[in-house]
Design a protein around this nucleic acid. Sequence first.
DNA 1: CCGGATCCGGTTAGATACTG
DNA 2: CAGTATCTAACCGGATCCGG
Lengths: 232, 232
Amino acid sequence: MAEGSYKQFCPVAMAAETLCTRWTMLLVRELVAGSTRFNDLRRGVPRMSPALLSKRLRDLESAGIIARRRAAKAPDIFEYQLTPAGLDLRPVIEAIGIWGQRWVESQPTLENLDPVLLMWDMRRNLNTEPMGSSRSTIQFIYPELPQVHRTWWLIVEPDNVVDLCSVDPGFDVDLYVTTDLRTMTEIWLGLSTVAKARENERLILTGDKGLEQAMQRWLGLSPFAGIEKIAS
Amino acid sequence: MAEGSYKQFCPVAMAAETLCTRWTMLLVRELVAGSTRFNDLRRGVPRMSPALLSKRLRDLESAGIIARRRAAKAPDIFEYQLTPAGLDLRPVIEAIGIWGQRWVESQPTLENLDPVLLMWDMRRNLNTEPMGSSRSTIQFIYPELPQVHRTWWLIVEPDNVVDLCSVDPGFDVDLYVTTDLRTMTEIWLGLSTVAKARENERLILTGDKGLEQAMQRWLGLSPFAGIEKIAS
DNA sequence: CCGGATCCGGTTAGATACTG
DNA sequence: CAGTATCTAACCGGATCCGG
């Protein structure tokens, strides 16, 4: 047992001992969302130091939540995969996320804008169903942001594999999305919609009319976007 | 926003910022279980320093989870009451508790035996329904423990108010329960039963036959006792 | 008793740089 | 890609003390 123990037999206490240390819940969120490799996990928790990430992964392993094994395809690369106990943490993440969506105010939330997290989340949840049978390239432009984070390309290949680039992949662009980071994040979180943002001209679409009309559908939202916010 | 922020707009991250700091989840558990006063909360988290408890209560207040107000009956005493946002944390505590019951192994759990926590939990969840219409006094004896924690009296008044004493209240005892702390905790957690413990003579009942037969019913168990443990 | 505040030493986490 | 190493700052635990 860890020295930091609560010394309580209560199941809540025993679980919290592992789960409620700094960064751990976000790390579990990334694992539940499907990330398995060290640097993928790191992208999901970019402000966590790699030393602490490494320690937390060892902690989760010894708690029986993940298993560290060599990747099947690349034996020199490690993968962290959820065990049955880890997979069963999904309801915990969902309960916390639902509470956060309902009760954490929008204002402090929207002080934490981050284009990298947003774009990777969008990539992860993109709905390829409304896409055609040929490749679709969508360019996002945040004019307010510094060069490195200003322009992004989302590419849906014919086999429905989704790719994200921050350097021009050279493909013809089917749809240009020009907006600001706050507006795009509000839409992602379900606090606004594509239609509302277009009305207010905070989001401008140019290009393929089909992709334009279908944006609210192909843009997969946050898993918690459907939960109604109660706090202001 | 706190300086310790994760800087992520994700609802899980925003919620975890408040909820996943040390002791906070256990404190919320106590609040959800019904404790409202500083020293009642303290009894539920006895190893938490009062300074940190005070800080956490202020944090929970500024997060909109509890409201600090003077008690209606005793205006010089403060009460910490859950707001609607706080009441809505019950599903979070339940999800964590269920996961803990399922996946945390019994062995580390049962290294955290604590007679004070156990007896107060038993008091809190006692089922008075099988009790008669007159006062019932049940004495618990843990022969292994030092004097101060060896003997406890659970008293159910005719109006179904439950009381817990660690000094002899002087009433006639209706039922004597002699056992060891580990056995009683296992029963409480649903890892054993009154019948099994009596078979193995790890739990001895003496006194009123009705109370004896009904012990498994009047002994309310941990809220998670019904969840099947999967881990060993 | 109730509801804290203060002080100090140890542990944990953040920042940054570096490596096989 | 997958981590270590190092240093500093923040947080936490434990004990003590205080005013009503």
